[in-house]
Design a protein around this nucleic acid. Structure first.
Length: 604
RNA sequence: GGGGGCGUGGUGAAGUCUGGAGUUCACGCCGGCCUGUCAAGCCGGAGGUCGCGGGUUCAAAUCCCGUCGUCCCCGCCA
């Protein structure tokens, strides 16, 4: 077996190889048996090449070829030759040549396939995941795997070129019950205690800054035990980075250079930098969201001025109560009553009491259920404020800012469509508030407690308006990642905990090890993390991140291929000092996979 | 926790609203023919618990209830 299985890669053969003896290996992509001659398309990772088997000339090869089926793994020895006149296939990279087979051998036969390898049919995703190894042979997944590899490679190239050190951090870490639910791992050596899988390497990368690394990056696997979305899995990958003696603009510039590199690699485009920056406040005012898709147009207008002193009681009441009237010019929708009602339902789903619509008629008058309540001046002011012309549909929400903004965002995203689907609209959202205001008016921390506030005094005295040095990177309406300038002063860190309602004692018991670290000459530092799955899925035009993950899980956290998760044997649990709760308490791995209610495990 | 879509031979779809024999289309599979095909072509064939359970009905893929799976969304994701 000293002889190599193959001499050449199928997809790389060209006319200049004519006359060469080659040995190929790969899979049977198709077989066209014309009786007197058999054409095979042999596919390997490099591409495809046509093989011709002539049973008259080579009877043994003819016998083998007759029994080949799709996806048999084979080797073919033969001679590369130009195709006869009129049979060149210009749609194929190797279409000028074919390999005249002298010998065909089956390395490994294939059962009939559960679905076809070509892209003809949109196979049910569970089917694809159940036979993911076959799905990976299909063009779509193959292209996505390659794209992901190239994206990560571009990131590494960019980081290395800028002097960053790649450092790995642990994936079995201390649980910090903040933010998302932790994925827990029981400890056998300390029964009853648990590790957590990292939601991010946050504190470790800060320790690396204290450790003098100065420029750190990592392709980090992160875990968050929250419900799935099209852009969320239990585990995901981030480009995580941090720099010492850095401020915000160093971070943004570095990330921009990484994005330029990745976009060049995957899209062959040159992004223009710097990316636009919006403050959080601007983003909310103009788009009603902290991750605006600026490709959609239809910016939100504030109509408080136009309706000041209005006689329309619904609006006047909202304005008097400190609320807002805002709207978007949806352009020439040409929508009937039912369509407009559906938009209204969308707005109501976001908490709005309703969505008022006004259509500008050709003569400039307004057709609307509320038209009769509006004076001529008001109508003119509204049209003026929204830049409305004949045919335009104007959609208005009157409510508190916390409700009006997201409601209009939903309507806007529902209606909007980018002019150019290939456009990449990167932008930064900066100056996030320290606290986010929920629709019910309550305040909740918007970021992790190691984020530096603009002013810690203000954070205490005016929490509603206090800003932090936190920023997000947004691409086409998706949050790609976020970062911040970190607190490096232990006293500031202590006060931030205090304001967040974490007592000195609690902070000491949970983060004492980190607070101590801050006391040993911590450099100012800042950093960021980019969601790799999201970035690659958007650049690849994929609708969800599962398409760029080789072995993803379904929405209920199941892997249709391996059937994970499963119950485990009682003795396996006993060793960990655990007792399973739920119906499958004494189930074993490989059972029917029905997870017990609660599914949890308690320390025993 | 909540809202919505989907589930029909191996695959994809139509049929479901308006109940009437597992009907149809494409691909695949099996067999045969075929010496220049290109997701070959032609002829023949096999293949089904219409996700599962219950109900209504003379009769259910179709209507009703429940349940499972999956996808999208809200909540959640500091």
């Amino acid at each position: 077996m000293g002889e190599p299985v193959r001499s050449d890669r199928a997809g790389e053969l060209r006319a200049s190889d004519a006359g060469r003896e080659v040995r190929l290996a790969g899979w049977v992509a198709s077989r066209r048996d014309l009786g007197g001659v058999v054409f095979l398309v042999l596919r390997d990772a490099s591409g495809e090449a046509q093989v011709v088997v002539d049973p008259q000339a080579v009877p043994a090869a003819g016998e083998v070829a007759k029994d080949l089926r799709d996806e048999y793994c084979i080797t073919v020895s033969g001679t590369v030759r130009p195709r006869p006149d009129g049979t060149v296939n210009p749609g194929m990279a190797t279409g000028e040549i074919e390999v005249a087979a002298a010998d065909v051998r089956v390395l490994s036969p294939s059962d009939p396939l559960p679905f076809q390898i070509d892209d003809r049919a949109d196979v049910d995703e569970v089917r694809r995941l159940q036979w993911r190894y076959l799905d990976l042979r299909r063009p779509r997944m193959k292209a996505n795997l390659i794209a992901r590899s190239r994206a990560v490679s571009a990131m590494r190239r960019s980081m290395e070129g800028q002097g960053f050190l790649e450092v790995e951090t642990p994936t079995l870490i201390r649980s910090t019950p903040e933010g998302a639910r932790d994925m827990l791992v029981p400890s056998r050596l300390r029964a009853g205690s648990f590790y957590a899988l990292p939601q991010s390497p946050q504190l470790f990368k800060q320790l690396l800054m204290i450790g003098g690394v100065e420029r750190y990056y990592q392709i980090a696997r992160c875990y968050r035990d929250e419900d799935f979305r099209s852009d969320r899995q239990l585990e995901f990958a981030q480009l995580d980075l941090e720099g010492a003696f850095w401020g915000r603009d160093d971070v943004l510039a570095t990330l921009e250079s990484v994005m330029v590199e990745v976009a060049r690699e995957l899209r062959g485009v040159e992004l223009s930098t710097p990316f636009p920056r919006l403050t959080y406040r601007e983003a909310m005012a103009r788009y009603g969201t902290d991750k605006p898709d600026v490709r959609l147009g239809m910016e939100i207008c504030d109509l408080g001025g136009a309706f000041a002193g209005t006689g329309f009681k619904a609006f006047a009441g909202v304005l008097d109560a400190g609320g807002v009237v805002r709207g978007i010019n949806a352009g020439p929708l040409g929508m009937g009553r039912s369509g407009l009602d559906a938009l209204g339902d969308l707005a109501k789903g976001a908490g709005a009491k309703g969505l008022a619509w006004l259509v500008v008629e050709d003569d400039g008058s307004l057709r609307s259920p509320i038209a009769k309540f509006l004076g001529d001046d008001e109508a003119a002011a509204v049209k003026e404020a929204m830049g409305a012309g004949p045919g335009d549909t104007l959609l208005l929400v009157a409510d508190t800012p916390e409700i009006a903004a997201p409601a209009l965002d939903r309507v806007r995203r529902h209606l909007g469509e980018p002019d150019d689907p290939d456009e990449l609209a990167f932008l930064w959202v900066i100056d996030f508030p320290v606290f986010e205001k929920a629709p019910d008016g309550s305040l909740a921390p918007a970021h992790h407690p190691f984020t530096s506030p603009h002013d810690v005094d203000e954070m205490g005295s005016d929490p509603e308006h206090a800003l932090s040095h936190a920023y997000d990177l947004v691409l086409n309406g998706s949050e790609l990642g976020s970062g911040s300038v970190r607190i490096h002063d232990p006293e500031v860190q202590r006060r931030v905990f205090e304001i967040l309602g974490i007592s000195d004692e609690e902070a000491e018991s949970r983060f004492g090890w980190f607070l101590e670290a801050l006391r040993y000459g911590t450099p100012p530092h800042a950093g960021f993390a980019v969601g790799i799955d999201r970035l690659v899925s958007i650049l690849q035009g994929e609708p969800n991140i599962r398409e760029v993950i080789p072995f993803p899980k379904t929405q209920t956290g199941a892997d249709p291929l391996t059937k994970a998760p499963t119950p485990v044997a009682a003795d396996q649990l006993a060793e960990l000092g655990l007792e399973a709760a739920g119906e499958d308490a004494d189930g074993v791995a490989g059972g029917d996979g029905a997870a017990g209610e609660g599914g949890g495990a308690s320390a025993g």
